[in-house]
Design a binder for these strands. Structure first.
Lengths: 278, 278
DNA sequence: CATTTTCATGCAGATTCCGTCAAAATCCCG
DNA sequence: CGGGATTTTGACGGAATCTGCATGAAAATG
């Protein structure tokens, strides 16, 4: 393999994750450790990466999106549909608080360009919105949790103390009869404060989250005002949620369900205008 | 075969994949190795391809170094040198506060992977560091100023109120005898709070900033502890700064100047830390 | 402070590159 | 058409570079 090609490949691997261990790179490229070391040294000198003990971190020009991994295995299409359906719930001029996570990121994406005030503790969402001139963005600070890029902790909680928003939109790690759960204690504490900030609490979750138990309990079902979920929602949860007073919004489904309306239920964008120069 | 035709064919082959080994090209064209070498040398000279050990890579169109924000006219190299010199001032385990701006971004880049606690209100810096494991990142929240991606305003100031750091590293819009200036009132107010947070105030600026007047005054020269600047610093400023008690660090210069010393004159590859979960 | 991991350096084998030179092709001109 | 000059092409050997491995040093970890 050509050295130049190999280095390009290395850079690709590193920039995808933001960082990579030497071992990962060696296994990915199938060359010796020494070679990877030497390549990293060259890339470091060129300023594209920064060598560290055990690997390298990306330091090139900003990457559009970190594209952090999605372990849930749920298709991006479902999440996008949820994002679009949630965005339809939000009116122009609203203030919304967006939690971190892949699903809420889709909400942010669907909201792009709309005249709303966004408050978020998520770095990817902030990045997405920072360039949008049409709307205000308020960033919640705090300790940044490495992998997911969300600000958490006492500083974040204190900062949200004086903030009130129309809708607080939160993701979930798992939802069972006992309520909404998430994996991280610090995250859950921060999310509790988020819920307190919102007049209305909206949970976004794909169907794979239902029936899954996670480490820490965030809240009971009755504390949720609205839930946006894809049509794969297990039927057994419906009565449970409804009796808890949760309004269910099905994303991307046919618009014959009660709550679905949404400027466009289908994201598939079909026919429309097209013009050939004749 | 005509030489011109052969070269065109070569270029076609290389541009198709983006790269090619010498062996591939020899086999494709059915000529000797020497001939291909000579052709590649000519194409390299013409700028169409770039020769490498073992082959060549296409270098036709993309020039991925447009030097995006070049209002200052200062080259990226100078800024990078300033970043490296500033990083050399920081010891492992320090807590540093990083302001927004292109120069401080270079500091963040040079600091990548080092075991330091970084506090910043800059979205690009946060983005850069979020993927770097094993290092703490504290994000200052607030109203995000659209174009530059920094968090400002009362929320930011309030959040910094309870924070103390070893070194506060700030950029500057312009530096004159009366002190340090910047363009934006909100920005300056936030930066004042930053200075209050730091035991030591470090200003980073390239030589083009000197003698330039900007809208709002941030502070007087005597409030600066250290200044990191490229060797293009106008001589007339030296006595002025020294009498104000500012320690001057010249970036990228030979390490025979008084202030340059720091663990190692050479910035070459500082071993660091990094570790991913097993 | 001992153990384990990672890093830097030197070295040998292999590959690639460069300068030189001779053969072949092409061109120029009578 | 032919002779000689010029350019192009292919080949060869020494120099330089790249790659992988081994060894001792340095750093991280508990």
């Amino acid at each position: 393999m050509l050295a130049e090609t190999r280095r390009r490949h290395l850079l690709e691997l590193i920039s995808r994750q933001g960082y990579a261990t030497l071992d990962q790179l060696v296994k990915s490229l199938g060359v010796s450790e020494s070679t990877v070391r030497r390549d990293l040294e060259a890339l470091d000198l060129a300023g594209s990466v920064k060598r560290t003990h055990g690997g390298a971190v990306y330091s090139g020009e900003e990457r559009p999106m970190p594209a952090f991994d999605d372990r849930t295995g749920t298709s991006a299409d479902e999440k996008r549909a949820i994002g679009i359906a949630t965005a339809a719930l939000i009116e122009d001029g609203d203030t919304v608080l967006l939690d971190g996570g892949t699903t809420t990121l889709e909400v942010a994406r669907a909201l792009l360009g709309r005249p709303v005030q966004v408050v978020t503790n998520s770095l990817p969402i902030a990045q997405l919105w920072a360039s949008s001139p049409r709307s205000d963005l308020i960033l919640i600070g705090g300790f940044v949790y490495p992998r997911t890029g969300v600000a958490l902790g006492p500083l974040a909680i204190a900062m949200m103390n004086g903030i009130r928003v129309r809708k607080a939109i939160l993701g979930a790690g798992g939802i069972v009869a006992e309520g909404v759960f998430n994996s991280n204690l610090l995250l859950v504490e921060t999310e509790r404060q988020m819920m307190a900030c919102g007049q209305e609490v909206v949970i976004v979750a794909d169907h794979a989250k239902f029936g899954r138990q996670e480490l820490t309990r965030l809240c009971g079902l009755s504390e949720i005002d609205r839930l946006v979920v894809d049509p794969g929602l297990p039927e057994s949860f419906r009565p449970m949620l409804e009796s808890a007073g949760v309004t269910i919004h099905l994303a991307g489904a046919s618009p014959n369900h009660e709550e679905i309306d949404s400027t466009r239920g289908n994201h598939q964008t079909r026919p429309i205008t097209m013009r050939t120069e004749a």
